[in-house]
Amino acid sequence: MINPFLEIVVPYAAFAIFIVGVLYRFVSWANSAVPLKIPTTSGQAGTLPFIKRSFYDRIDSPYNKWEVALRMLAEVFLFRSLFKNTRYYQSRHEHRDTRWLWGFAILFHWSFLIVLIRHLRFFIEPVPEPFIYVTELIALKIWVPTIYITGITSLIGLGYLFLRRLFSGNERTISLPSDYLALILLISVVVTGLVMRYIYKIPLAPVKELALSLIVFQPVAVDVHWLFILHLTLVSITIAYFPFSKMMHAGGVLFSPTRNMPNDNRKRRHVNPLNPPYHGITREEYNEMYKDQLEEIAERDYNFRPEV
């Protein structure tokens, strides 16, 4: 099915919206001042030399920019804060670690990342041999009709994230339609991809030709299967929606002042570019206001000794 509109116009438009939108978001965030250095300190701060700081303290309460880098890496790649998640059992007034959300979130994000990296084979030519080898290894290729585990696991992860919004009371309360929309978009992208890979197979060569032609800006409308066009359209919608949706958390976490600033407030001064001047009583005004009392203090030589 040749459809220049869906094959060329829509993906380009979506990609353009994606790039411009994300950059717009970055710049608009950056355009806001950072008035205060407000890291959340989840561990012992840098302090007197004899107070021991463990490795976790360094991550959770960074004292210099290297430790901040470590904290950000742990946050972005390991979901460090989510890992600390607990649950409160109201009936026993008791806390327990709960890591289901962390586990499935990390399952989805990592699987999806690997799936994306594996998609590069459609966008690069020639495909280097080591690339295929490495990605097949990390995508856990198994069985004789080969199955890449990551495709399945990303769907499992998404499924969990979706179902918890439906079945957990707290989640249902706070979930907005847009939360479901993002999940449904991702699920449909993954499902169409899996269908094309495992159930209803479509010719690949035109797909790659289309992908390559798009990526090197020599667009050719190629005769590809409608399932792929569906997949492509869903992907286009998703990436076009990306900058305007909560999916932008991927970039936003880098801008989060509670995580990306070191907890060295008293060591290095943070400057608020928009700091307003002080309005209030100055020491001189104060002296005027309480002249008598201050003089009495002066009379007692600034020293109060109990009468015993």
């Binding site: 994606f18 790039i19 994300v22 950059l23 970055f26 710049v27 950056a30 590069l120 966008f123 690069i124 030519e125 020639p126 030709e209 390559l212 032609s213 990526i215 090197v216 800006f217 020599q218 050719v220 970039g251 880098l254």
Partner: peptide
């Protein structure tokens, strides 16, 4: 922020950069 933008664009256009620089690129 500029570093971040460069990294972002770099990742987005990495296939293009690879294709342009790789010897033996053929579209079809």
């Amino acid at each position: 922020v500029i570093l971040l933008i460069i990294a972002f664009l770099g990742i987005c256009f990495s296939p293009l950069i690879y294709n342009v620089s790789a010897p033996g690129f053929e579209l079809e």
